[in-house]
Design a protein around this nucleic acid. Structure first.
Lengths: 331, 331
DNA sequence: CTGTTAGCGCCTTCAA
DNA sequence: TTGAAGGCGCTAACAG
């Protein structure tokens, strides 16, 4: 492997000049620039970035911690992060933690040991179970929840859920079921609080029987629909903690001969691509996933470059997208 | 940030001893080991891995090129890769190329510039449009297709497709439709060849009208089902190039009053998790995704460590999983 | 505009 | 078992 010294020798110049030619070519004479070009080509010289980074004491890399990489929403957030990072000359190291704290710590170690400059965490957490933030680690929490410590970018989950449920109430619904996500999941908790708040506002008493436990996955939405279909009295509308379960539930209700939206209204959360296509198309909360990613990256890069951001918490606007899946209750 | 020299000073020893204490503690006296431990804790010393890697001239990192990160199958393959890599002390850098050659090149540059030691490519390609392999880059192609240049790990797509279609023929089906994936996609091509081979074996003439173009996504499966439902005569069975489209098609057929498997048989490809749950459960080809990942990683690490693998092409066994979605045709 | 030189943090001889 | 010293490839003074 050719080094900068080999190039210098080949071009009959010093390493300093080669280095300059690479970083600020305008400050090197044209003649020498040409010689250098030729030498580089001849030797197939590629700068050793490991050496560059070592010397610069900065890896120009940020780690993105993802609980589950095969997830549309996260993929969009990552997309936004990469956009900003690349524009600023940073690379993105994806850390699929698969919800394991051990794996999460490993990635934190990477920044402790200089392999990365900072972390964006896509796993929502409350204060209690937080590994991050850590004193000596620059980190930002993306798509976080209420009460996330330190820098964070998110939407108002409570408000969004409340808005959705209030809309159902305004349509005339009184018995509104919930397909919940994982119990301990902070997003689930926030959205659930929004649900309760909407009921409280309308003086509807909260009935825990109307809450069916799901796990954010398709299958659990299907099961939930079955349970709702045999309830007496049956709810007239459902608020699902994500689109995937909502879409499964639509399917499940149809199998039981319950038609949407005539017999049953349903609202999801996320606005996945399929939600525009399913039958009926799904009313849902749309999160600005890419924007969340972009904002998080901007925040982290600010921190890395030693600037102090104005605010700790950035709350981005969501959108309540009304589609075919809701209607006033019968009677 | 404390360096190894600071620790040496604090412990009253030389840097060499500290270094040894970190790598081969058994070769350092217990007394000194203790002193060193204390010094490290006091100074909160963390070795600078950028320096370590620089000196070792090896990043102990492999890049995994993924066309689309939000994809179950790829996620499983990556899982297998990470398993092997971590056991051998390598980290995995995920490169989501989003099918862009530019982005792909960027990751190739990382290994040229020492930021990574080798590449595992999850994008299938034929000889013509290959960026990899490249002379000076160690790479392995995972989940590749027929005719992939250089080291590769895959299943026999042609054989698998042929087996599935032959099974339909054996059940008595003669008009067998296809929901294809993206036209240029090599997996699509291989599987399509398998389909044709099965027809040829049974002396059934290939009818291009029975092929509906899809794109591997849910929505295209739905559309395909609509098209098939108005064909006259309608096919009695469908071979779908992946599970996602197959599951969508089941849905689409049901909407048209076509019941599976009585009125229509269907077979998918991939064996996604949902395929075990949908109604009817889906007959499909199961790929050993994790195993493909593991084998690819083993191969690449062998190459990195300078050993020459026995074979260039590793073909892993697939499984034809028969579930409820197929039956003999009516009459 | 170009060359010289020192040193980033670590590890590995080599000698004690 | 420990210490001293050199060097990995690169860049940033500084001097010319």
């Amino acid at each position: 492997m050719a080094t900068i010294r080999d190039v210098a020798k080949e071009a009959g110049l010093s390493t300093g000049t080669i280095s300059k030619a690479l970083s600020t070519p305008e400050r090197v004479s044209k003649k020498n620039l040409e010689k250098i070009q030729i030498a580089i080509k001849k030797l197939k010289y590629k700068p050793n970035m490991l050496a560059q980074k070592f010397r610069a004491k900065s890896s120009k890399t940020i780690v993105v911690l993802v609980p589950d990489i095969a997830n549309q929403f996260f993929a969009s957030v990552i997309s936004g992060i990469e956009l900003v990072a690349q524009n600023r000359g940073y690379s993105v190291l994806l850390g699929d933690t698969r919800d394991s704290a051990v794996r999460e710590r490993e990635f934190v170690r990477m920044v402790e040991t200089k392999l990365a400059d900072g972390i964006i965490n896509l796993r929502p957490y409350k204060k209690e179970d937080a590994i991050l933030p850590q004193d000596d680690i620059l980190s930002v929490s993306a798509s976080s929840c209420e009460g996330t410590p330190s820098y964070s970018v998110r939407i108002d989950n409570v408000g969004a859920a409340k808005k959705a449920v209030s809309h159902l109430i305004a349509l005339g619904h009184k018995r509104i079921g919930v397909i919940s996500g994982l119990k301990e999941n902070p997003h689930n908790i926030d959205r659930f609080n929004g649900y309760k708040a909407a009921l409280a506002d309308a003086n509807i008493t909260y009935d825990p029987k109307l809450v069916v436990a799901g796990d954010f996955n398709y299958w659990s939405g299907l099961t939930a629909a079955e349970q709702f279909s045999i309830m007496k009295p049956r709810p007239t509308a459902i608020f699902s903690m994500n689109d995937e379960m909502a879409i499964a539930a639509i399917r499940g209700f149809k199998d039981k001969g319950i038609n949407m939206p005539e017999d049953m209204s349903i609202i999801g959360f996320d606005d996945m691509e399929v939600s525009r296509y399913c039958i009926p198309t799904l009313t849902t909360i749309s999160q600005p996933a890419e924007k969340i990613g972009e904002k998080s990256a901007e925040l982290l890069l600010q921190l890395i470059e030693g600037k102090k951001p104005e605010t700790e918490e950035y709350i981005l606007p969501y959108e309540f997208v009304i589609r075919e899946s809701i209607a006033p209750p019968k009677i």
